[in-house]
């Protein structure tokens, strides 16, 4: 790691002020992606602003038809939350499959979506549910939030405070793991909402994206057979040593169907994880640090 100044503000205002005074300071949430990137010297900041002392950013509550989760809430808390499990079981299941248990103890919702790793799980949940990201400056619709690989609309001095997830009629997340990192090789979040079906795909492309053709078909008929006539083009999808774009395209269809089947049939929280497989499915899964989970970004650090 390059050295940096460490700040741990006691209030959100302090945090915002520190950020505004130093252009290249970076926010530190759970650190599960940022610190590994710093350790490998893939990133450099002159200061880190640790949000760990801001208790008001941590917590889960239900407000009307929404589940509101503080940005600094660790994945494990979301996974274990009875409120989330009752209202949006698919979200609890997704959180319970991020990274590994030790990463989930530390990694946070805000950190995950701000990092916007193209293979992370939370972006699929946020986009799939059509959640609203609340920051110190504004509220941002999920559809506007993710704009590219590791890229969001967040401005340099903007801090995510919470994410508001609408409670939907049915939802499910199906993930197919990359065998090494155990990030999503392909993860699909399907949500049936009053406004129609939303399908968000992570791991397959440079950024999380909505699978519009599937959404239209599923809005007409919320059944995996509705997808039989649909395919997704491999062009534009990620291709790396773990999976070709062509295979990822295939997996997107399979995982979408499985998510639909799960959402349609299983109203309660379900963790369908079977045991022992390579390239396991259904196992809401993994997230670890990783700058760049797609081809070309990985590999030897000696380049």
């Amino acid at each position: 790691m390059y050295d940096f100044e460490y700040h741990k503000p006691k209030s959100l205002d302090d945090a915002a002020a520190t950020l505004s005074q130093h252009e290249d300071f970076k926010l530190l949430a759970g650190g599960m992606s940022l610190l590994p990137a710093l350790k490998l010297r893939l990133a450099r900041y002159s200061g880190l602003v640790d949000l760990g002392a801001l208790g008001q950013l941590r917590g889960i509550r239900r407000e009307g038809d929404e589940i509101v989760i503080g940005a600094m809430t660790p994945h494990a808390e979301v996974a274990d939350s009875a409120a989330v499990a009752r209202a949006i079981p698919a979200l609890a299941a997704l959180a319970g499959g991020i990274g590994d248990p030790l990463v989930r103890n530390r990694g946070t919702l805000g950190g995950s979506i701000a990092n916007a790793d193209p293979a992370a799980d939370y972006p699929a949940g946020v986009l799939g549910l059509g959640a609203t990201v609340v920051t110190t400056r504004r509220t941002i619709a999920a559809d506007k939030f993710f704009i590219g690989m590791f890229e969001t609309v967040l401005e340099p001095r903007e801090i995510i405070t919470e994410v508001r997830f609408p409670i939907v009629e049915a939802a499910a997340y199906s993930k197919f793991r990359q065998p090494a990192s155990r990030f999503a090789l392909v993860g699909v979040f399907v949500a049936r909402t009053r406004g129609g079906v939303r399908v968000a795909v992570t791991g397959a492309a440079p950024s999380v994206f909505r699978f519009k053709e599937a959404e239209e078909a599923l809005t007409k008929q919320f059944d995996s057979t509705a997808l039989d006539a649909i395919t997704i083009a491999a062009a534009g999808l990620n291709s790396d040593i773990h999976a070709s774009a062509e295979y990822r395209a295939h997996c997107v269809m399979v995982m979408t169907k499985r998510a639909v089947a799960k959402a349609a049939n299983v109203p309660s929280p379900c963790n369908e994880r079977g045991r022992v497989r390579q390239g396991a499915t259904m196992s809401v899964n993994i997230n670890t640090p990783s700058p760049g989970s797609s081809a070309g970004e990985r590999g030897s650090t000696y380049r």
């Binding site: 741990k8 650190g31 599960m32 610190l35 530390r106």
Partner: peptide, 28 residues
């Protein structure tokens, strides 16, 4: 160096964490 192997696991305020991915300063 990628927060995966778990050899560095300790308990921080009673919770298991990978100590290779926690800043010492944040443990005040």
């Amino acid at each position: 160096d990628t927060t995966q192997c778990g050899c560095c696991t300790v308990h921080l305020n009673g919770t298991g964490v990978k100590s290779c991915t926690v800043l010492a300063a944040s443990c005040e």
